[in-house]
Structure formats: C-alpha cells, structure tokens
C-alpha cells in the first residue's frame, strides 16, 4: 500500500482496523518481556531497587521527545503539504505526548524522593522536561479552545513548530540557569557507566513504550477521524432539518 493510499481516511481506517489487534498483542508481549527483564536486572549498588524506576522513566522521556518530533512533522504536513491526515496525527499525538511527559515527571519525582530526599529539585534535566510538559499543555489548550477544528489545527501546527525550534534554546538556557545558580540543594545524578545488564532491559522497555505509543496513536487517530465524521454528519443533519 503506497503512502498516497493512506492519505485517504477510509483506507487508513481499514488499515487501522486490521493492524490494531496485532499491535495491541505485540505491546502486551513487549511489556511482559521488558518488565521481566527489568525485574531481573541487578540493583544499583548505591540506589538499591529504586533504580528500577529508570526503566519507566527513561523510555517515557525518550518517547515524550519523539512524540514532539512526530508532531512537528505532522505540523509541517498540515501547513506545507495540507495532508488530510496530518492534523489528525498531530492532534491525536498531543494528549499522548503530554501523558508520557507527565509519566516521566511523576516517575522522576518518585525516583528523586529516595535519592534527593525531596520529590522535586530544579535540576536542569527535570526542569527542561517540565517546560516540555507546559508546551504540551499549551498545545492541548489551543485544541480545546479552537471552535473551528481546521483553524485550531493550523494554529496548533504553528505552535508546535515554534516549540520545536525553541526546545533546544530552552534546554540550553535552563542548563545555563542551573549552573549559574548552583544552589546547595542540587545533586547531580552522575552515576557510573551504565552496565549492559541494565542497558538491555532498558532498550526492551523502550521498545515496549514505542509499541504502546504507536498503538495509542493509531487508535487516537481513528477516534479523531470518527469524531470529525460525526461532526460532519451533524452539520448535514442540521442543514437538512
């Protein structure tokens, strides 16, 4: 099936219907394997069992950033190529990205409690993720407030692209801000080199998260297409009444 066929929402819905059960199964299996590997991974000599939070925390962070990248491509698709599925893809990805970022923040905070003795420190990395979370929420807020879905999609696309350009700048400035202040309460978690016994389960979990993301995203895109069809049908019903 060529990419051009996927541009047709009906073909796309067909594809989703066929692929989704397999993706769900693959996600479940990948999580079963990943979590088993993570459970069997050795404890850190310093942090003990709490290091296992990393197997949720790090993949969530990776996927959260990947999701913004995907939204940026979708935003280009909306603005430049006016691809019919692009803004559906962007809109469907935003809440998932926000949820992944939130997962990353919560797991990071739970991880930080035993390590730092507090749920939150204004560590450069954590803070960057928090700003990413705020950007996600901004995009979501834009989708919520827009009454006309098409105009909302274009506005959100602009915001996503601006965000994509700004993310490195934000990251840089947060790093600079953090080293500038060097508060006494900052502890850097610069542990030893990561051992393969940790790395392998980490990649397994990352794969599981990736599958989860693809599954959720396709399902969300399907829902969005169906939601738009309902809206169109309502409009038609209102016209003929």
């Amino acid at each position: 099936m060529a990419l051009i066929d996927l541009a047709n929402p009906t073909r796309f819905l067909d594809l989703v219907r066929r692929v989704l059960p397999w993706l769900i199964a693959a996600t479940v299996i990948a999580f079963a394997i990943g979590l088993t590997m993570a459970m069997n991974a050795p404890d850190d000599y310093q942090q003990g069992a709490t290091v296992k939070i990393m197997f949720l925390h790090v993949p969530a962070a990776w996927l959260a950033m990947l999701c913004w990248a995907l939204m940026s491509v979708a935003a280009l698709g909306t603005l430049v190529w006016r691809h019919p599925l692009a803004d559906v893809a962007g809109k469907a990805a935003a809440p998932i990205g926000a949820a992944l970022t939130f997962t990353c923040l919560v797991t990071g905070s739970l991880w930080g409690r035993p390590m730092w003795g507090t749920y939150w420190v204004w560590d450069a990395r954590l803070t960057s993720v928090l700003v990413l979370f705020l950007l996600y929420l901004g995009v979501l807020a834009l989708y919520w407030t827009a009454e006309d879905p098409n105009r909302g999609a274009r506005a959100a696309a602009v915001l996503v692209l601006v965000g994509a350009i700004n993310l490195p700048i934000i990251k840089f400035s947060v790093d600079w801000w953090n080293t500038l202040h060097q508060g006494e309460s900052i502890f850097r978690a610069g542990g030893p080199e990561i051992d393969p016994t940790i790395l392998r389960p980490l990649f397994a979990m990352a794969l599981a998260f990736l599958l989860l993301f693809v599954t959720l995203h396709l399902a969300a895109m399907r829902n969005e297409i169906l939601r738009r069809r309902v809206r169109t049908m309502q409009m038609m019903q209102a016209q003929t009444a």
């Binding site: 409009m235 016209q239 009444a241």
Partner: peptide, 18 residues
Amino acid sequence: VGLDAIGHLPAGTLSAGQ
C-alpha cells in the same frame, strides 16, 4: 419552529436562520 428533529445536535451546527 421546526427544530424538533435536531434537538440533540450542538447549537453550534445550526445556520443563522435556525
């Protein structure tokens, strides 16, 4: 007023006359 068939629709879908 002839709107009984579409009482369940969001009012945002209505035309100016409706």
